[in-house]
Design a protein around this nucleic acid. Structure first.
Length: 210
DNA sequence: CTCCCGATAT
DNA sequence: ATATCAGGAG
């Protein structure tokens, strides 16, 4: 069966499994979601949430991060891993945000991607989740793995996978498909021991790469 | 392609 | 012990 044919079934069953799929990062403003998403690289949401709970009390917005003492910020971010890189990204991102966008998170992928530490995945998370804009499809390690196993793409690079998915999935489903597929990958189609027995797509999955 | 880097599941 | 985890920059 061509992969395009299974997409409507896929979307219907995804909705059953994850009716209110949304990101599991905690945030109260688009800026906080942007910071949290940068911190989420190679790190679980749970650990990011543990850090941001106190982080966002200490640093109230882009101005506070821009003026922060860098070694101190590094320590604040240490539990998320890559902490020197992430401290630099968050601080420089905040400075650029103030300099170029008046401290307001831009609502376009072109604008977001100019910020340090922000590429398509992070930009799509912010636009899809905070602004409900179908700017593209979030492709992280989970979406990539699930899409490959289901035979929706044979590509390796996230940007190429996103292109394939955008052709297959109707645009008004993009903001649902991304987060829902992330959850499916996180809890069912896991990297190491995928739970194929309890997977709602078991009957239509070629199980590529499993 | 390599590097950044700590925490957790297997 | 080691692969992997909501990636991105140089």
């Amino acid at each position: 069966m061509p992969s395009a044919q299974i997409v409507p079934t896929l979307l219907a069953r995804l909705r059953q499994a994850h009716p209110d799929a949304r990101y599991e990062l905690n945030w109260s403003t688009p800026f906080e979601l942007l910071v949290a998403t940068i911190l989420a690289a190679q790190c679980t949401d749970e650990r990011v949430n543990r850090v941001t709970a106190t982080l966002f009390q200490k640093y109230s917005g882009p101005q506070a991060f821009a003026e922060a003492n860098t070694p101190e910020l590094e320590e604040d971010l240490r539990p998320t891993g890559f902490y020197k890189q992430k401290a630099k990204s968050v601080q420089n991102m905040s400075r650029e945000l103030l300099a170029k966008f008046g401290g307001e998170v831009p609502r376009t992928i072109e604008g977001l991607v100019t910020l340090p530490g922000v590429a398509r995945k992070t930009a799509n998370v912010v636009l899809n989740t905070a602004f409900n804009l179908p700017s593209g499809i979030i492709v992280d390690t989970h979406v990539a793995r699930v899409s490959q196993r289901l035979g929706l793409t044979k590509k390796e690079k996230p940007e190429d996978i996103e292109q394939d998915l955008m052709k297959l999935v109707p645009q008004d489903q993009w903001t649902f498909f991304g987060p829902a597929t992330v959850l499916h990958g996180r809890y069912t189609c896991t990297a190491r021991k995928p739970k194929c027995e309890e997977c709602p797509f078991n009957d239509l999955c070629p199980k590529i790469g499993v």
